[in-house]
Amino acid sequence: MWNLLKFGTMRKAPFLCISLLLAKGVFSVETEEVKAVRGETKTLHTGVKDYFKIFWRNENNSNIADCQVLTDDSTLCKTLRDGVQIDNQTGSLTFINISDELGGLYKLQIINKSFERSTNEFNVAVFNPFPIPIVYKSENSSCSQCFLLCSVNETQTTLSWYKGDRLLSSIHISDPNNSIPLHLKGNYEDINEYRCVVNNSISTQTKPLSTSELCQSCAETGLNPGYIALICLTGIAGVVIYWRWRKRGKTGRNGKWMPMHITQSWLRRKRIQILDWPAYSPDLFPIDNVRRIHKTSYLESAAYRYQNGGTGGSPDEEENLDY
């Protein structure tokens, strides 16, 4: 009988051990997937506030950080790897300026004050920083209508336009050459409320709009259609007036037609009498008088020198002095 009981107990022992291990959580370790962007701060939370000991180990079971509550209820914590910190109240592990080297599997073991153990695992994946979206103005834009395009050099992302907290449009990007448009009209006083947002399951980046670098109203650019029409009419009127002025003008040197009729009309209205001078009158062109006086004076002095046996004053020289 004893042998039978002993044999039955031995048969049940493996099942009893497996049940105890499952109850302790040995075969039910949970692995939490954690995504981080290179350069950011990321924390692995323990989810507890009361403990006796906490251990953090890597995938090679090497100790990274640990905390222990001492007899005087103070806490002693230490870290054995650069770039990590451990919270002495919760035992949570924080990565400062996370890098690719800090990615991988992390194992957490917690021993509470009843000396019960629990374990958990975190698989940390580190990704490249997400680029800020690019916003640019389309060639079809004008001062009255502004067409904006937002794009990002990434795939498998979502591009969206927001005005404040209100979603205006959104598309999924599978090709980095794709973009999402935004059509604005008016004076763009509220353009600073618009923003382009790109996001995926890892990160989000936002590009707010700025009036100074994108859309400007017609009043700011000076290209109001009314102003343009006024400038065109003024130019046409100026051409017509100049043409008629040139056509009616009269007399100048060499008898050419010149725009003088406005001056003559003004003199007549003021009843100012003027003398009729010929076109070649020296009084109209003083330089001719100066040349004539200089020529006469030079020839007289040259003739005097010639008569007294000096040089100059010859007939040939007089002919060469004709200007």
Rank of each mutant, 00 (worst) to 15 (best):
R246L: 05
Q145P: 07
F130R: 08
K250I: 09
F127P: 06
S210M: 12
K207E: 11
P129V: 06
I231K: 15
S142D: 12
C143E: 04
V152C: 02
S160D: 02
T157W: 01
E116N: 09
F130A: 05
I180L: 13
N200P: 01
R246V: 07
F127Y: 15
R117Q: 10
R253T: 11
L214S: 02
A229E: 13
I132K: 14
D165H: 10
G222I: 02
R244G: 05
V135T: 02
P133L: 01
P133Q: 01
R195V: 00
S210E: 13
V240L: 10
Y136S: 14
V240M: 11
P208S: 06
N224Y: 08
I134F: 09
N128D: 14
L233H: 08
G252M: 09
R253E: 06
I231P: 01
N192S: 07
A237P: 00
D165E: 14
C218T: 03
N192P: 00
I241H: 15
W161M: 05
S212G: 11
G186T: 01
A229G: 10
A219W: 07
L182S: 00
F130N: 03
Q205A: 07
L230M: 06
P208A: 07
Y227D: 15
S201K: 08
C196R: 02
D175Y: 08
K163M: 05
T211W: 08
N224W: 11
S142C: 08
Y162W: 04
Q205W: 00
I231C: 11
C215V: 00
N112W: 01
V124K: 07
C215Q: 00
L214P: 00
N120V: 01
V239T: 12
T221F: 05
S138Q: 10
A237D: 04
P133M: 03
D190G: 04
I231F: 11
T204K: 12
L184N: 02
N112P: 03
I236T: 09
E121T: 05
L230K: 08
E116G: 07
N140K: 07
V239F: 11
T157K: 04
E139A: 15
V197Q: 06
R253M: 12
N178A: 09
A125F: 04
N128I: 08
W161I: 04
S142A: 12
Q216R: 13
D165I: 10
L167C: 07
T158S: 15
L148P: 02
T119F: 04
I228A: 13
C196H: 03
L168A: 03
N140Q: 11
N140S: 11
L168H: 03
S210D: 13
K185P: 01
C150I: 06
T155D: 05
S142Y: 12
L149Y: 14
N178I: 00
C232A: 10
T211A: 15
Y162S: 06
A229S: 14
S151L: 01
G249M: 05
C215A: 03
N192R: 06
N123S: 15
V198Q: 01
E154F: 03
S160H: 04
T158R: 08
L223N: 15
F115Y: 12
N177M: 09
K185I: 09
R195K: 12
K137E: 11
C143W: 07
N112V: 02
W245Y: 13
F122L: 03
E139S: 15
W245A: 12
N178M: 06
K250R: 15
C232S: 11
S169N: 15
K185Q: 10
C150N: 07
N153K: 09
L149D: 10
